[in-house]
Nucleic acid binder design. Structure first.
Lengths: 225, 225
DNA sequence: ACCAGTTTTATATTTCATTTCAATATATTA
DNA sequence: TAATATATTGAAATGAAATATAAAACTGGT
């Protein structure tokens, strides 16, 4: 209500926009609060008033990426399990195609220095996977004896750890998606009803194959390092 | 070789010891490089010379906790799958019984600001889970078509994400172990041979039950918050 | 005991996130 | 329109990590 709130929203928007630009231009290195405030045309204190911390701003940039949700909405797949993998694939494609940008954003996800994460980040992520699992459950793919909440959390566990490994360079672009697929397929296979296990098993073996294929033999790595 | 190296080792030891003490006494708050250097009886520059960064020191403290490995060595279980869960349980008991200390240490695991993690942390964790899986595979519990390396990584994914949620307070002491157990049971069930699925399924449902049991009804939470 | 090479030390500096607070501007409300 | 409430601003201060540098101390070999 009112112009005061509108002004705030506008300032928030400018700050997020400035953060996005700075991250794109310089990576996380150039993202100092002074540079950010200057770029957004506000004082140094304002971002703190509106967001609380630098980290909250970076998370806000990540949240602000709506493209993914929009493009996901256009994904139609008859098979609810396929839909889950399609969602993962879509998200990971975004990340891979803009690695340095998203690596910076995801770094903020793993920052434990404040309480921002629990409040902002989780509810949304959760709801997303949970919806997909409930769909799969309704379609009879997931056994009713498992809690959608629990399964959603486990899938999110896989994805988040894989993203952490990707961010720090333990998992390269080629192995990211197959690795996440393996984890998802394992969990979904264990929770699925008999008729749905075969395709999940196939996907599992296929993903495992893709990981091995993009992993150079150990000796060669050791030799180079 | 020589006294030079011995002196270095001694200084390293004193720094790790000082860090451990400071974390115990004050949590991460009191762990400033100045306090650390003073407590260890070295100059401010020395920890940087020997470890590189504050984070590397905290990770060194975590690595230095040998109790777990030693006590795990005494764990004897006929069933290789049981052994995996026993290992998780043992580790989590340590963490729960000394929450604030281990929360500080684990925070460093999720810090993406430098490259220390990839080099120091992963090989050991990996080898540990991999060994357990290979044992289970040899005993016929895990299907040979799955790569031990891949499965070890997926288990580690679950554990690490759960630890992150625990560190930031998204997962309380009561739900930590059942949540990790669920994830492990799902993955192991999906990778297991037919004869081994029933006990895993039982553990899965049991853990799920324990999560629900320790989760207060939503309405009550909302009312309090 | 001496020399040469390393490492530590002491000290100063830089950079950065974050906080504080009085002053000022803007919006809401009566 | 005047009074009140709210938010931003500017400027300075704090505290901590990390880096730089030269002097001092120590080690290993001779």
């Amino acid at each position: 209500m009112g112009r005061r709130e509108a002004g705030k929203r506008e300032r928030r928007r400018r700050i997020i926009e400035a953060a996005r630009t700075l991250i794109r231009e310089t990576g996380s290195t150039g993202l100092s609060m002074r540079a950010l405030a200057a770029r957004a045309g506000v004082s140094l204190a304002t971002p703190y008033n509106l967001f609380g911390s630098k980290r909250a701003i970076v998370l806000a940039v990540l949240e602000d990426v709506r493209e993914f949700r929009e493009r996901f909405a256009t994904l139609r797949s008859a098979d609810p399990v396929e839909r889950i993998f399609a969602a993962v694939d879509l998200a990971l494609e975004y990340y891979k195609n803009d690695s340095s940008f998203y690596k910076t954003l995801w770094s903020a996800v793993f920052d434990t220095s404040d309480q921002v994460r629990a409040e902002i980040l989780n509810p949304q992520r959760y709801a997303f996977w949970q919806g997909l699992i409930i769909d799969a459950s309704k379609a009879g793919a997931i056994s009713k004896e498992f809690d959608a909440d629990m399964l959603a959390r486990q899938l999110d566990f896989i994805l988040r750890s894989a993203m952490l490994d990707w961010v720090v360079g333990d998992l390269d672009n080629d192995r990211l998606a197959p690795t996440v697929f393996c984890g998802f397929a394992l969990i979904l296979k264990a929770a699925s009803t008999p008729g749905w296990r075969t395709p999940l098993q196939a996907r599992l073996l296929d993903s495992q194959e893709r990981i091995m294929a993009s992993t150079p033999p150990r000796q060669q790595i050791a030799g180079n390092a």
